[in-house]
Design a binder for these strands. Structure first.
Lengths: 232, 232
DNA sequence: CCTACCGATCGGTAGG
DNA sequence: CCTACCGATCGGTAGG
């Protein structure tokens, strides 16, 4: 359907790895990044933290339903029954990753500064994109596995999303009201700006010749252009 | 993690549906649209077509692994064993949806006209966005369930994606070379423009006060702005 | 398109 | 944190 870009540097059609630069690069099926990382303070000590990290890796790669509790336990070096000494159910493991993902993202949004519309939008978009580029596995799990949670367990994340969405919409509306932004429709500008940032989690990987900061800066520039602030 | 916007008009926190406009709208967990539709010519006659349609609905809502062959059969009004008279395996049902999604999207891209860079980019982005707004369930399945296919069965879709990606990149590069576009980095402009369009499938729904055409037009305008073509 | 059934695996529990 | 085990469900097949 799409083009979810990526330079496809971790998979090739050729089974011969020495095929060299002429090998056809094939994009990832879901996510390019493979570095398991959780925000500071979000990772519990000991086995509980190990379970979260392995779940992050497996859920990002195979999905929640595609990962059995035995897969997860084996990755942690324990028996499946031992998981239940740390989490009440498999769903609670996902719920914790979803919670951490949404809360850390939202905290960055709330921490975004900026007083005038331009610096404000730049700060908000930078925060949004940085969260996705620095924690791509977490973002993919939080975004794409949310449907595996029951409505009750998904509800907190959905409330956080609604708040973040409103924050971006308010930022755009304020700029329009101030006559600084020129946007045909601020709802669609919100979907466009948030959407482009979310997809960063699917293609970004540390093997690319960009730092997360560079991506955040460039995407903030794109967002300002969408908002009708001409380029320099 | 994100804000995948949507006006949340099909779910509310309140169990009382008569709560009225003060009810807090809660966004969908994965996709807002629920209208099952396949591109013209992509739906086989009879039971095989019915299986594809029900699979589209169930895979979009619950995912491939979250849908059992008994769920699918029941939705079609047949027994699970009968599925195997129409498809070799469950995976082949998904593969067919992924194929249809990618091929119909790609056909629209290839059909996009435009000679000068501005009209060319507009046509390509319109095609991209229209495919996602008119067939949101198909787009979500093709994009988000691709990881459930084996590498062999996912390969054709990945090749199509690579081609579409290159088409957009070439469009941007041509505009830059012609001095019409002004972009700090065409790779990132490609990821941004394709990403914003892909996310349309997650939030768009016919209940919103926009037609797919209006969304495509507005997103094409946003893409031109990202490309450094100032707004009118 | 069905009934009947296969072995494998699922999430989770008992009891220590 | 383990062994042992539960009933339920999984994708798929045999045979008609």
């Amino acid at each position: 359907m799409p083009w979810a870009p990526a330079r496809g540097h971790n998979e090739t059609m050729a089974s011969d790895r020495s095929a060299g630069p002429t090998a056809i690069p094939v994009e990832q099926r879901r996510i390019v990044a493979d570095e398991v990382r959780l925000p500071p303070g979000a990772m519990p000590e000991g086995t509980q933290g190990r379970i979260l990290c392995e779940a992050l890796r497996l859920f990002a790669e195979r999905g929640f339903y595609g990962t059995s509790i035995r897969d997860l336990a084996q990755a942690c070096g324990i028996r499946s029954a031992t998981l239940y000494a740390h989490f009440p159910t498999k769903e609670h493991v996902l719920a914790e990753l979803v919670r951490v993902g949404h809360e850390s993202h939202h905290a960055r949004l709330l921490g975004a500064g900026g007083t005038d519309p331009v610096s404000r939008l730049r700060a908000v978009v930078r925060a949004h994109v940085l969260a996705h580029a620095e924690y791509p596995l977490l973002a993919v799990v939080a975004n794409n596995e949310l449907h595996a949670l029951s409505p009750e367990m998904a509800a907190p994340a959905l409330l956080i999303r609604a708040d973040g969405r409103q924050l971006l919409l308010d930022t755009l509306d304020a700029g329009v009201d101030a006559g600084v932004f020129h946007v045909p429709d601020t709802f669609m500008a919100t979907t466009a700006i948030s959407g482009m940032g979310m997809r960063v989690a699917n293609w970004y990987d540390r093997g690319l010749p960009y730092t997360p900061e560079e991506i955040a800066d460039t995407y903030a520039e794109f967002a300002l252009r969408v908002a009708g602030v001409g380029h320099a």
